[in-house]
Structures are given as C-alpha cells and as structure tokens.
Amino acid sequence: MNVTRYDQAPQYFPENHFDIRCVRLQGHEAGPAQSLWIGVSTIEPGGHTTMSASALEKHYVVLAGELTVQTEEGEVVLRANDSCRLAPNEGRALKNRSSAPVSVLLAMPFA
C-alpha cells in the first residue's frame, strides 16, 4: 500500500496553468503505480489553463466548487461530484469563473 497525505503530496508545475496549485496523490513522484496517476488541482478564482490537448485521455472529478471546461465543441459547468472525460487529443481549457476556489481530481494513464 502507498499512502500519500494530501498535505504532503508533491507539487508539480504544468505549463500554461495560471493560479492553479497541482499536487500528485499517486504515481510519478507520489509513489508507485502501474497504469495511471492521480492528482488534485486547486484553481483560484480567475485561475485557468490555456486551450491545449494531450495524446492521453483525462478524467476530471470536481471535488468542491464550480469549474468551467471549454472544448472546441463548447463549454460546460461542472459542480461538486460532476465529472468529465476528455478523449486523447481533445483540446480543453479549464476556468474558475466563480468567487471561490475549485478543487478537481485528475486521473490520467501513463504515457
């Protein structure tokens, strides 16, 4: 078993993320994992990512707050316990348009 305490989770710094704190809970520098890694991002009010895509699918689960997810097809607002899956190479931008932080769980396979 590998336990990662949230307050000790290693922080990482993805490009094109603004006013967002990202930590890894499992996988990569947070410990062993075979198929996927899990992280949590805290997005401050006004925080956002630029529109970008990766070759890997992504799964987001909103833990608290309200997150706007924009794709080429439009945008959707996710609230606590809502989730979305982004396909490989599907562009996305994340935005916190609210006045409170939003907390988002991210699960991704390894490259």
Rank of each mutant, 00 (worst) to 15 (best):
L63I: 11
S52K: 13
L63N: 03
V23E: 05
K58N: 10
M108K: 15
N81G: 03
E90G: 05
V3H: 11
Q26C: 10
K58G: 07
P88C: 06
V77P: 06
S103D: 06
S83P: 06
Q8D: 13
P45R: 03
S52N: 14
A9W: 00
R5H: 05
H59L: 13
T4H: 07
A80R: 14
D7H: 09
L94T: 04
Y12K: 00
I43R: 02
K58L: 09
P45S: 05
A87S: 13
A33I: 10
A33Y: 04
Y6W: 15
A93H: 02
D7Y: 05
V62Y: 09
V40G: 01
R79S: 11
V76N: 09
T68K: 14
P88W: 08
Q8F: 08
P10K: 09
C22Q: 04
V77D: 08
Q11W: 02
S103T: 11
R85Q: 13
Q70A: 12
A30Q: 05
Q11K: 14
G31N: 06
L86F: 01
R5N: 07
K95N: 11
S41P: 03
E44K: 14
T71L: 08
E72F: 07
L94A: 03
L105V: 12
S99H: 10
V77G: 07
H48M: 11
V3A: 12
P10E: 03
E73D: 11
C84E: 04
E15K: 15
C84W: 00
S35T: 08
H59K: 12
R21L: 13
V69I: 14
L63Y: 06
D19F: 10
N2L: 07
R92V: 13
A55F: 05
V69Q: 08
E29L: 10
I38T: 15
A100P: 01
E73A: 14
T71M: 07
P10I: 01
D7C: 05
I20L: 02
I20Q: 03
V76P: 00
N16D: 13
V23N: 00
A107H: 03
R21Q: 15
